[in-house]
Write a protein that binds this DNA or RNA. Structure first.
Length: 601
RNA sequence: GCCCUCGUAGCUCAGGGGAUAGAGCACCCGCCUCCUAAGCGGGGGGUCGUUGGUUCGAAUCCAACCGGGGGCACCA
């Protein structure tokens, strides 16, 4: 696999530092950074000069001399500098400011990187975590309920992380922790039993029909629950019979679960995310283990009875009254809450799924809950030292008024409606840009563009912050949106299609590069480093930033460096190689975010 | 009250020790006989919430304060 230029430079500069300073520099970080003043700059001389109490500028001059043979450094020929064996990628070094090293790379080195990545299916990026298993819990919709913007964030971010982690070599186990249990099911089942006509007339129906009747069921059942005390009593009894395994109750419950899954599948299909039925593990799955968890924790003294509830307490977790606030494993009425379920899920994920890492892509409002659950699981040994558990939290979705995102009428926004809105919006733009497309083709293209825009908007802002959901902005399709990247990718394929017959993307390392070509090659080289950060921090927005910047650099190249009409066959092939690699990089990057990149737009 | 989180251009956001703080939107001015103008170039616009501290160097790290949002016993 290709080593990135920044890594090669780090090794070279470290070698030069060590040659000049000896062991004092052996573990020093050369602090290689992209630079406005050269291809890269090394900032590592300054702290090192401080450490050895030397003059930073003088030290920088000696390191520069060691990096590049005196011949290339007319100003600082220094016979006393020790020779250093380096990779040879550096063409020139300049000492600037208080002791920065401005590093300019040889054109041939840039070309060499392009050549190496171009021929590789992974574009020269090596997987770093082969053999490790990540369990990732995301999406988490509730049975018999609409999905809304909160689910959108979890689903989109989770799906991107799945793709990114898999690309990094991990085995990824998706877990869609469905809300399929709770007292509200007593009410729903009872209503359904009493009103069989609430079901849709046709057996075969869409996900949209499924959620629409379930939503009506929920609404009507709640209304009757509040209006009719007799029904409320029967609903409460129904909870008990359901938990007792009553067949009629279970059948109704299973029917609702199946209907909901039909709807989820519809939504996931529209969103083009990889969640499937087999990934769904509802809360109810853990029911058989809850009593055992409670008994185990109580018996080992990790949890104690307090006001009848089985509780785990923590240092520094207090309520407004100054009293400690516990994690409640078992309620005083004997029932189990979601803390018990989450603990059982950890056991399952560690014990059965063999997780090395467990991720929870959940709203930041759950931060305290997860802190307590993880801490409890650590104490109980359910979460051993070798297993990492991370609450991959994200901020709330707000409307343009800065308040929680709602419709004008104050309702939560239905996910399907929101996605349809984005696609409808895109249809208009697509039709305007491509008048010759028929309605069906325009619709298909608008789906790719519109859904991509929604996902990109969500993924491109830093995860932990709240974010303002502005459909108009995200589907405006200008500027920093997914369509900019898709457009760059489509232009690339247009170029590749128009190459004269017989022209292949081929690197000619002996050609001098123009500034726009250099910038493009340099940026292409940073894909691996970008992905490494994204995976380490679970921050997909760093990838969107990289891709957007890459597409901007490509636009600059596009304006300044004709490919099809290049001045010579060699230049044409060389540029075609850059274009091809840029296209592949955009395509891969978007794919890892869950966004499609068609060859034509 | 305690804990978490966020304050960067008119708006939405990047940047999380390194040189003159960036992008998009909006606004103004230019660019299609030329590989897709869903694009490109230029312009105006900032006490990086405040005050201290650490450092050769702070938007970035630390502390305090101010302001927004969130969470804090049997709902998930």
């Amino acid at each position: 696999m290709a080593k990135a230029l920044s890594e090669i430079l780090a090794e070279d500069v470290r070698a030069a530092l060590t040659a000049v300073l000896g062991d004092a520099a052996r573990d020093a970080d050369p602090l290689i950074r992209p630079s406005d003043h050269a291809d890269f700059q090394a900032n590592g001389v300054l702290p090192l000069a401080k450490a050895v109490k030397g003059n930073p500028r003088e030290l920088a001059i000696r390191v520069a001399a060691a990096l590049v043979p005196a011949a290339a450094q007319p100003g600082s020929a220094d016979a006393g500098s020790p020779a250093v064996s380096t990779s040879g990628v550096i063409a020139a070094v300049e000492v600037a400011g208080p002791g920065f090293l401005n590093l300019t790379l040889a054109d041939a080195a840039l070309a060499g990187q392009v050549a190496e990545r171009l021929g590789d299916a992974r574009l020269g990026v090596s997987p770093s975590t082969i053999g490790q298993t990540t369990v990732i819990d995301y999406s988490q919709p509730n049975i018999a309920k609409e999905m809304h913007v909160g689910h959108l964030r979890s689903t989109v971010i989770g799906d991107a992380l799945v793709r990114l982690l898999e690309f990094d070599g991990r085995t990824v186990v998706r877990q869609n922790h469905l809300g399929d249990w709770g007292t509200q099911f007593g009410m729903l089942i009872q209503y359904l039993v009493e009103h069989p006509e609430a079901r849709p007339a046709q057996a075969e129906h869409s996900g949209e029909v499924a959620i629409s009747w379930l939503t009506a069921l929920y609404r009507d059942a709640r209304a009757e629950f509040e209006a009719d005390g007799g029904f409320a009593d029967r609903a409460r009894k129904r909870v008990v019979t359901l938990q007792g395994g009553d067949e009629e109750s279970l059948a109704a419950w299973e029917e609702m679960v199946a209907e909901s899954k039909r709807y989820f599948e519809d939504v996931y299909g529209r969103l083009d995310v990889r969640l499937v039925d087999a990934d769904a593990v509802g809360e109810s799955f853990y029911n058989p283990y809850l009593a055992d968890i409670a008994a185990d924790l109580e018996q080992r003294g990790i949890a104690v009875r307090s006001d009848g509830a089985l509780c785990v307490f923590f240092d520094g977790v207090k309520g407004p009254d100054g009293e400690p606030v516990p994690l409640i494993v078992q309620k005083s009425d004997g029932g189990f809450g979601y803390a018990a379920t989450d603990l059982a899920a950890i056991r399952h994920r560690v014990g059965t799924l063999k997780a090395d890492q467990i991720l929870y892509v959940v709203d930041s409002r759950q931060a305290l809950h997860f802190r307590m659950v993880f801490e409890t699981a650590r104490r109980a040994g359910y979460l051993p030292d070798g297993v990492e558990a991370v609450h991959v939290q994200f901020g709330s979705v707000l409307g343009t008024d800065g308040k929680p995102f709602k419709t004008r009428a104050g309702q939560t926004v239905r996910l399907i409606e929101l996605l349809d809105g984005a696609v409808d919006h895109a249809v208009a733009t697509v039709a305007e840009k491509n008048p010759d497309l028929d309605a069906e083709q325009a619709r298909a293209e608008a789906r790719v563009v519109g859904i991509g825009a929604v996902k990109y908007a969500d993924l491109s802002t830093s995860r932990t912050k709240d974010y303002i959901f502005d459909l108009d902005r995200m589907v405006s399709l200008t500027g920093n949106t997914s369509v900019y990247l898709q457009y760059a990718h489509a232009r690339i394929h247009s170029i590749l299609r128009k190459l004269p017959v017989g022209t292949e993307p081929r690197v000619h390392a002996d050609l001098a590069l123009e500034p726009a070509e250099r910038r493009l090659a340099l940026q292409l080289d940073e894909l691996g480093a970008t992905l490494a950060t994204v995976v380490a921090e679970f921050e997909p927005h760093r990838l969107t930033t990289y891709l957007y910047s890459l597409a901007q650099t490509f636009s600059d190249f596009y304006e300044n460096c004709p490919v099809v009409k290049a001045p010579s066959a060699e230049v044409r092939e060389n540029r075609a190689a850059l274009v091809r690699l840029t296209g592949d990089t955009l395509k891969l990057g978007l794919e890892l975010l869950g966004i499609s990149a068609p060859d034509q737009l």
